[in-house]
Design a protein around this nucleic acid. Structure first.
Lengths: 145, 145
DNA sequence: CCTAAAATGTTGTCATGTCAACACGGGTGA
DNA sequence: TCACCCGTGTTGACATGACAACATTTTAGG
């Protein structure tokens, strides 16, 4: 078959639009409240949740699914803004740590994030369908061909 | 409430992951087959579908939901690669047209796009749930507060 | 110990996006 | 007529992201 059917085109457009808008709305609220960007928030929460405010760069990259260079660029920008620190690690590699400013920012951002996720995603999905939709989304994100 | 519940966190992560991966997989197939990026493909298909290969920049921007400057930058890059042309319009503004190379590229890309959308999105959703999911996605993308 | 491969980061280049400032052309009202 | 506002684009500065080329350090093999 050459093109998409009307039904297929419709879900594709709805998918693109919903992907963009939900992410953008949540990011916008966090940014307005705290000045943190979406990638900033991701890094800072990982540092708190996985490490004790400190992680090796390679672990951080793996946990986010990022390439080394992406993380390096991002950390350079965040370091300039005083959100994180980099130090030579005990073993190989580099250790990343939250600064007090980074901790404060993520503490301020978490409730805003939770509120935004509820308002823009969770509360717009009928609760009877939440579990089923979660399964479908997880299947869509699975590795495969 | 301060943070997200486990269930809320789970759907949020699944949402982020699925958004990224599905879009990336479809874009990757189009790029590998034709050299077109996702925004390239969007512009070219609009020019064919809405205009007759030609549209005013402002109409194009409105139909994509883009800001003027974003479109201007994108068209500059596409013009350099010979995919589109810009000319002063009859009235105010600027007219954008497909070049033969642009037409050929989008003709090659359409079936690849359709195949990719089916493989990475439609076929992974149980067909009994397609219509319902489409409605939910459309609600998520709707304007609101 | 010494050399080669692997792991780890950094850097430069380019594509993509956002935002604000600027440029221009056509009405429109005094 | 003339000054001003508006619709349209363009441009420059910067953030984000992908990819490849390097630099360094670890670790393994011998």
């Amino acid at each position: 078959m050459k093109g998409l059917s009307d039904e297929e085109a419709r879900i594709w457009h709805a998918w693109k639009r919903a992907s963009d808008t939900v992410r953008a709305r949540v990011a916008e609220e966090i940014g307005a409240a705290t000045g943190l960007s979406d990638p900033d928030f991701g890094i800072l929460t990982r540092l708190e949740d996985l490490g004790d405010g400190t992680l090796r760069q390679s672990e951080l990259a793996a946990s986010m699914g990022w390439h080394r260079s992406r993380l390096s660029h991002q950390l350079t920008r965040m370091e300039e803004r005083g959100l994180v620190l980099r130090d030579a690690a005990a073993g190989p590699g580099v250790t990343v740590s939250l600064t007090p400013a980074g901790s404060a920012a993520v503490a301020a951002a978490r409730p805003v994030h939770a509120e935004a996720v509820r308002r823009h995603l969770v509360s717009r999905i009928p609760s009877a369908e939440l579990a089923r939709l979660t399964e479908v989304l997880e299947r869509l994100g699975d590795a495969s061909t």
